[in-house]
Computed example of a mutant assay.
Amino acid sequence: MRKMEVRPYEAQWAALFRDEALLLQRIFGDEIVEILQLLTAIWLFATTCVLILMKPSITAM
């Protein structure tokens, strides 16, 4: 089993992701675009699930 580390958001992650995507695009060409689109969709789905689970329940006052 792999260990997972949860860290606070860092603004530099967007730039690091973009740089890595550009490097992969240069290496693999258009083949990587479909993989990146799939991974982005999976990431968005997982993030949405986490946000839904973290949302506090709303109670009537």
Rank of each mutant, 00 (worst) to 15 (best):
Met1Glu: 12
Met1Phe: 13
Arg2Phe: 13
Arg2Ile: 14
Arg2Gln: 13
Arg2Glu: 14
Lys3Phe: 09
Lys3Met: 10
Met4His: 14
Met4Phe: 15
Met4Asp: 13
Glu5Tyr: 12
Glu5Pro: 13
Val6Pro: 05
Pro8Met: 00
Pro8Gly: 00
Tyr9Ser: 05
Glu10Lys: 02
Glu10Arg: 02
Ala11Lys: 06
Ala11His: 04
Ala11Asn: 05
Ala11Pro: 13
Gln12Asn: 10
Trp13Tyr: 09
Trp13Gln: 08
Trp13Met: 07
Ala14Val: 11
Ala14Asp: 15
Ala14Cys: 10
Ala14Tyr: 09
Ala15Thr: 15
Leu16Val: 15
Leu16Gly: 13
Phe17Lys: 11
Phe17Arg: 12
Arg18Gly: 11
Arg18Ala: 15
Arg18Gln: 15
Arg18Leu: 14
Asp19Cys: 13
Glu20Ala: 12
Glu20His: 12
Glu20Arg: 12
Glu20Trp: 09
Leu22Val: 15
Leu23Gly: 12
Leu23Ala: 12
Leu23Ser: 13
Leu23Pro: 09
Leu24Val: 12
Leu24Asp: 14
Leu24Cys: 12
Leu24Asn: 11
Leu24Phe: 09
Arg26Met: 11
Ile27Phe: 09
Ile27Trp: 08
Phe28Glu: 13
Phe28Asp: 12
Gly29Leu: 05
Glu31Met: 03
Glu31Thr: 01
Ile32Leu: 05
Ile32Trp: 04
Val33Asp: 09
Val33His: 06
Val33Phe: 07
Glu34Gly: 03
Glu34Leu: 01
Glu34Lys: 00
Ile35Asn: 02
Ile35Cys: 03
Ile35Gly: 00
Gln37Leu: 02
Gln37Trp: 00
Gln37Lys: 01
Leu38Ile: 03
Leu38Cys: 02
Leu38Pro: 01
Leu38Phe: 00
Leu38Tyr: 01
Leu39Ile: 01
Leu39Cys: 02
Leu39Ser: 02
Leu39Tyr: 00
Thr40Phe: 03
Ala41Leu: 00
Ala41Ser: 01
Ile42Ser: 02
Ile42Glu: 03
Trp43Glu: 12
Trp43Gln: 08
Leu44Pro: 01
Leu44Asn: 01
Ala46Arg: 05
Thr47Asp: 03
Thr47Met: 05
Thr48Leu: 03
Thr48Val: 04
Cys49Ser: 04
Val50Pro: 04
Val50Ala: 03
Leu53Ile: 06
Leu53Asn: 07
Met54Val: 08
Met54Pro: 08
Met54Leu: 07
Met54Glu: 06
Lys55Leu: 06
Pro56Phe: 00
Pro56Trp: 00
Ser57His: 08
Ser57Cys: 06
Ile58Leu: 08
Ile58His: 07
Thr59Val: 11
Thr59His: 08
Ala60Tyr: 10
Ala60Val: 12
Ala60Trp: 10
Met61Arg: 09
